[in-house]
Every structure is written in C-alpha cells, then in structure tokens.
Design a binder for these strands. Structure first.
Lengths: 363, 363
DNA sequence: CAATATTTGGCAACCGGTTGACAAAAGGTG
DNA sequence: CACCTTTTGTCAACCGGTTGCCAAATATTG
C-alpha cells in the first residue's frame, strides 16, 4: 500500500483576499467539530442579502450576474476572507482543477525539470499539479495512474513503463499526455534525440574515436531504444563501430557496475542512456586509474542538475525537459477546454553540451 | 497567483480491488456529464441488499457491523471495483487523509530526503503527502501554508522562512510540525548540529588549520544562525579563529560568488551552510588554480545527493534529513490521533562524513 | 403603452459520502 | 416466558458547493 503520490494545489480564482496574521480575526462560522472553519457561500449570501446560488454564480460564472450584485458579493467575500472549498466544488462537478504527473522516481533529477516546467505552466493557468511516483515498476505505475485518474482532471505520464494498451485505456477515460515516449492515438511530447546524438557522435568521430559503446537504460524505457537507434544510425553514418551494453539500473551505481563491461568492449567513447550512468561510470573508471577524456570519452544524456559537479564536467546531450513538461501541460489544458489533441507527437530539439568529459583520444 | 504546490495521494483503505485492463469492464453507473464514473456506496448497497449507511460503516468503521454483512458488503465492493470518492468523504468530515509539506525549493536536493522520508512514512499509514514550494519567499510561504492548511489534516514546514508568530498562528488552526527550526510551542524536529560540527572542526584542527571561515546561508534561515554558533563555539574550543562570510544565495552559484571573499579572508578551511555552496565554492577555487584540499579544505553541510560527484568528493556534515521527515510525519499523525505533541524539540544526530575535500594543509 | 425578448435571481435537487438518533433484532438473565 | 441489555441496520440530515428550470424584473420594440 505504499504508492507515494504528491500533489500540487490550485488557487482561489475569485475575489481578492487579504491574509491577516492569524487569518481568524473574523471567524464567520464555527463548526461543531472543533476547528474553526472558513466562510461559505451561505455566509456570503446572508451578508450580501442574496441567494447562495447567486453567490456561486458570481464567483464562478463570469457575466451571469449583474455588475452591481457581483460587486456586492465580491465585497462580502473579501470581508469574510472567503475561500472556496475545493472538495465541495469537486463533488458535484468532478472538476478538481488538478492535473496528475507520474514519474518513475522522485529522487531522479531527470524529472526535476519536467516537474518544474509542468508546475509552472499549470499554476499559471490555476491548475494544481499532483505528482506520483511509480518506483520504476510498471505495476505500481498503473495502480498509481488509475488511482490518480479519479482525482485529477488530466494525467501526464513521464517516461511511462507500462504497456501502450494500458496507457490507451487510461486515455480513454480522461485526457492523458505522455512525455518521453510515442504512442499512437495518445498525445505525446518527445525530445527528438537525433540532432543531439548526431552532434555527439560527429564530435567524437572528429576527435579520433573509432569504437563507441552505448550503455542502455531500463528495458521498459521506450527512450532507451530510441537512443540506441540514434547512436547506431549516427555511428554508421560517421563510420564508427557501436556496441550496446546493458546496465542493471539507470543510476550512479548502475554506471559503476557497467565500467568493467565498457573496458572489455574496447570502446574509447561511451554514450550513456542518462547522466547518472555517465557519472557512475566516470567515477569507476577514474578510480581504476583511467583518465577522462584522455583515454576515454564519456557523454551523458539529459544534462541534469549536477552534471557539472564532476571533474571533468560531463559532456551530455541536453533534453529540454522543462519544455517537455510545459508542452504536456499545455496540451492537456487545451484538451480540457475542448481543443483537439495534436495528431502527431510534439518534438522538441536536443543539443550537445560539450564540457570536459569528452575530447581527443590521447594514446 | 503562481504558488506551486504538489501533493501525494493516499490509498483506498477498504476492500481489495482488482484492476482489470480498462477498469471499465463493469461500469456500474454512468453519469450524465460524459465520463463514466465509478461505483458508489449506493450501488454497493443495492447489490448487497442493505442501506447505504451500512455500507459506509462496513467500509470505514471496523466492528460496527456484523461479520456476516461485512463480508457481503466487501464482496459487493470488490465486484463493483469500488473506490471511495475522496472528495465526498472529505466534505462532511473535513478529514482528507492528507498532510502538507512546504519546502523552499523543489529543485534543491536538500529537501529530497525530507520529502522521501515524509512520503514513505505517510503512505505507510495511508496518508498522502501534499508538497508545496515557497520559492524561498516568506510571503509566498505564508500564502501557500494558509491555502494548503484548508486542504490537509496537518502541515509540515521544512526550513520555514516565515516568522515564529505566523507559524504559531498556523499551528493554532491545525497540527503543524517544523523541521530545521525551533519554535517554542510548536513541535519541531531539528538536527543537532553540534556533534557533527565539532567533529568537523576537530578534524580540521588536527590537520593543521588555524583560520576557519563559515559561509552563511539565507538570513531568514534559522539554521544558518545555529550552524554559525556551532562553528564559533567549536572553533573557540579548538583554538581556531573563525570568521563568518555571507553568501548571496544558498546555491552553487552563490558558492562561486563567495570564493573571492573566502580567499581574502585568509582562511585555510571553510565550512559552508550547505553542500551546494561548498560545491560552487570548490569549483571556483579550483578554476582559480587552487588545490583542494592541499591548499584549502572545504566542508559542506547536509550530504545531499551528488555531494560525491565532485572531485575530490565533498567532506560534509550529514544531516539525517530522511529521518527528520519521518519523525515529523510521525509526530503529526500521532497528534491527529489525539496524542500530545512533544514538549521539547526532537533532536536527531549529525555526523561528519569525511571524503576528499578536507585534509592536511600543505603549504 | 402594451407586448415581447432578455437578464437576473431564487428554488430545489444533486454530487457521494458520514453520523446521531432510533427502532428492530438478537442475546442474556431471573 | 417476560424483561432488560446489547448489537445491528435504517432513517434522515448534513457537508458546501453547482446547475437546470422557472419566475420576477428589466430592457427592447412596435
């Protein structure tokens, strides 16, 4: 029962309120259950001398009531320091002003920018982001998604691990957008890896490398395959040989573990599925006495926070993950307003960020 | 209007359900509003041949109904794939099975462990974590807190920037726990910095350092003062001189900016308010040709994710932030069950983690 | 100025649970 | 078997908004 989910709350879209220090200076109603509750539309209605339904309309249906009563009601609301009760609103309407975001691992910095982008874009349009973690497990993911779906207006899946059909089933219930994976029939936002990868491979080729290794990520990650294909194609084009190596997990530790395989492969340049693998790999190789980039070049993927903490700083193919989050939210909110979902996957550009961990081969 | 909040959802605590692929195989009721909704206690009541209120009791008041009807109802619930509607439950009770957590910056890794710890402990007790960000601003923080407070059962403030009185006002409304700060009358969880700091200072003294600098964090951070006092006291005890330097912001960039001041201070060892400052500082000093730790030792604070990405890896005073999160949630949930809040601040131990960035002074 | 069209506000039902009060059923005792 | 206590299920009100429908008030038009 340990599906962890996190969420992000929307804002009151009605009258301006001023928060006095305690917020309880003018407690309008006291409830029996012990704690002081805040004002309701009934309190406002009484104060303004109108019907509660008029208050409801004044605060959520712009134009439905006359400017005069609108003013009276807004003043009353401000005086009582009114805030809508989101539960009461959600109950009859089903609208929660909330969108869900599921990521594989909260502590994986890859997702920070996605979260940030989604959160910023969402709250700019008065939507709350609800974040859930799947702990890299397809089962947990689908459970979390199902559960979340009943609570939110729409759902974003970042690097989902579940099956295409499961995702399509979710999308049949409510608007769904996917990041980092392409699924026909579902709106998707994917970094177009080819540009960044071909820049990376060309840069490595130009530095005299001939044998390239790709360290793959989780088997269930759609992206790991796309990136490998990109590397393979670019390597072919640049007349490099490329081998694919598997990692146990897409973390620093996984990177350390794969170091032996990398050495055995004889590759002088490595592109990894993500930056964490690159960092772990680099640490392990350096610990074994190898010099980066003199003896081996390492290129990561994503350009996460911390990619420049290392010495040498990590060369990496940057994915504009913040933009992915922003785009996904935009698509979702547009769908909620009745717009059509984009027929094609939305592509955002990747680019090579050259730092110190790649360079000319000295040997 | 851009207060970003994130939240984390609890789990259905009733009957076991099986999630078939679409989850819509046996759609019990269809609502007019377009989307298929899930089963309600009324559907269950009809199927089980009892009153809805009996269903409600069977599913949430253990022992209130006979074992026989309990079984019938649970079977019916399972058959209909029932999930409680959290909004409907929250409306009359006010209980949301949700606790709020406010952090200054989601992308600051210091908070990851707190979030993780809080989330894990919370979901183990069927509580959802709602995460909000204050963007290091006291105003945003108090607004977010107020807003969140109406939606959650209790609130955790991690390194709050607002005034003591504002926090006490919040605590008057609902259970509140504070991490990384001590406020009389409010339950607090604080790392006891003295042990870790004195270990750090003693280690530096033993390595021949005589002049120590402390790079402070945000003025509004209670912790920055505590740490400085700890450093001052420990330095006195070890007969080192200590100076305090201010940083513009508690980030890598802030660390880079303070490098000049550090050099001018003439200190040969630096303890920073947090690891990000330490990393930035180390980068800048190394870029300026200084050798760490041969010419200057650097000790960070917290032991964040990535503290060992650097070369040399960062020596740091580890705060058990995960445990802080766990403790805070435990206190909060106990309070929600009617327990007394602890009178004293709960203290968790810190310890020095020696890595490569501190050591003997060679000069 | 009457007749008609358009706003505007009120009534009441509803969303899906929870819970106090009470009566029916079941169990215990003399 | 009558009487009393305890258990168990039902009734109905309530949480705080939303919204379809209707009537009153107002504006428009002939």
């Amino acid at each position: 029962m340990a599906t962890g989910l996190f969420c992000c709350h929307a804002v009151y879209d009605g009258a301006v309120t001023d928060l006095t220090s305690t917020g309880a200076a003018t407690t309008p109603t006291k409830r029996g259950r012990g704690e002081k509750s805040s004002a309701t539309i009934y309190d406002i209605a009484k104060l303004a001398g109108v019907n509660p339904s008029t208050v409801s309309r004044a605060l959520s249906k712009p134009g439905r009531v006359s400017a005069k009563t609108q003013k009276i009601i807004e003043d009353a609301a401000a005086e009582l320091n009114y805030q809508v009760n989101p539960f009461a609103r959600a109950l009859p309407t089903g609208r929660t002003q909330t969108i869900g975001l599921i990521v594989a691992d909260i502590t994986n910095p890859t997702f920070f920018d996605i979260i940030r982008g989604a959160e910023t874009t969402g709250s700019a349009r008065d939507y709350t982001l609800v974040l859930a973690e799947s702990a890299e497990s397809p089962e947990t993911e689908v459970t979390a998604a199902r559960r979340l779906l009943s609570t939110v207006d729409g759902l974003i899946l970042a690097s989902p691990r579940m099956d295409d059909d499961q995702i399509r089933a979710l999308a049949a219930d409510k608007p769904v957008a996917v990041i980092n994976r392409e699924i026909s029939g579902v709106p998707c936002v994917v970094p177009d890896v080819n540009k960044g990868i071909s820049e990376a491979v060309r840069s490595l080729a130009a530095n005299g490398h001939e044998k390239l290794a790709y360290v793959a990520g989780p088997a269930r990650s759609w992206m790991t395959g796309r990136r490998w294909e990109g590397v393979k194609a670019a390597a072919e084009w640049s007349k490099l040989s490329a081998v694919r190596l598997e990692s146990s997990k897409p973390t620093v530790d996984g990177g350390r573990q794969v170091a032996r395989d990398v050495l055995e492969s004889g590759a002088t340049a490595v592109i990894t599925y993500n930056d964490l693998l690159a960092i772990g790999l680099m640490q392990e190789l350096q610990a074994g006495g190898m010099s980066v980039p003199d003896q081996i070049s390492i290129v990561g993927f994503d350009d996460i926070f911390g990619a420049d903490f290392t010495t040498p700083a990590l060369t990496t193919v940057r994915s504009p993950l913040g933009e992915c989050g922003t785009r996904a939210v935009t698509i979702l909110l547009d769908m909620l307003q009745g717009h059509e979902a984009p027929g094609e996957a939305v592509r955002v550009e990747t680019e090579l960020v050259v730092r110190g961990s790649s360079g000319r081969l000295l040997a």
